Simulated scan of single mutants.
Amino acid sequence: MMRNVTKSFNTPQGENHDVLRDINLSVGAGEFTAVVGPTGCGKSTTLSLICGLARPDVGEVLVDGRPVEGMGKDVGFVFQTDAVFPWKTVLGNVAAGPRFRGASRREAHAEATDWIRRVGLAGFERYHPHQLSGGMRKRVALAQTMINRPRVLLMDEPFSGLDVQTRQIMSDELLSLWDLTRPSVVFVTHDLEEAISLADTVVVMTAGPATVKETFTIDLPRPRNPREIRHTPEFVRLHERIWESLRDEVQVAYRRTVTATPDTAA
């Protein structure tokens, strides 16, 4: 939960710039929330505050009713770029979390083997990341995070570097894995269709300094098939409503970039 949160950074010109201003955001237990907004509006900064990598200048950030003081063991983070250990095998990467938490090598490997199977990589346990495709590395990253059974799962455009077909497959995989343990998810994406097909709630953020503009309930039935649900009339109506809200913010952000001077744009 974020209450009246404001976060600022210093610009290269030495000025104070608000990235987030008076943000109020609440995610229920087991709820899947997607956050959309124009490029550079502060979506990734929001995740950094929730996980404790940054602290607000004003307001408070709470997880399970307690103020966030740093990166907690109950919070998992899946980044846009691969965050796997390049020198470790698939098995070593997925087993890393349990090992860090004190599990024996045998216990960690047994649990990791199970999660590798769940993400469809059985048989690739001894491979290294450079031997895998982009989609396979994303599956490793998901297993590496989900094995720790986080109560809060943060995802920063995790599928943005994948081709369309692989993205759709990964959306299916994500919903299947999420359904196993039901963590609270905050999923940042630029893809509105992806947001609607995955989430219970879609939050639209304004062009920076960002605040919450509108929150939409996605009342589509679960379990969902993200590839099929996009063709339903209910999905189309939701897309039109949310895009109407988001479009204005995208246009504001675009006008700022085309009218900015070189010094300002930097």
Rank of each mutant, 00 (worst) to 15 (best):
T259W: 07
V252S: 03
H231G: 10
D248S: 12
F216H: 13
P221K: 12
D263S: 13
R256H: 12
R227Q: 12
E244P: 01
R227Y: 03
R222V: 00
P209W: 08
R222H: 10
E244H: 13
P209L: 08
Y254S: 02
S245T: 13
Y254T: 03
R237A: 14
P262R: 10
S245M: 01
T261F: 11
P262E: 02
E240F: 09
E240M: 12
L246A: 10
P223R: 02
E240R: 15
T259R: 14
T217Y: 02
P233V: 07
A210R: 01
P262I: 07
T264R: 15
V236L: 12
S245A: 15
E228L: 10
E228G: 01
R241P: 02
R255P: 00
R230C: 04
P209E: 05
V212M: 04
E228C: 01
W243S: 06
T211C: 06
T211G: 14
V212E: 07
T257K: 15
R224H: 07
H239K: 15
E228W: 02
E228D: 09
I229E: 05
R255V: 01
V250M: 15
R256D: 06
R230E: 02
T257R: 15
D219L: 04
V252I: 15
M205Y: 07
R222F: 04
D263H: 11
H231P: 06
R241H: 06
R224V: 00
Y254M: 07
E228Y: 00
A207N: 05
F235S: 02
I229D: 06
D248V: 14
T261A: 14
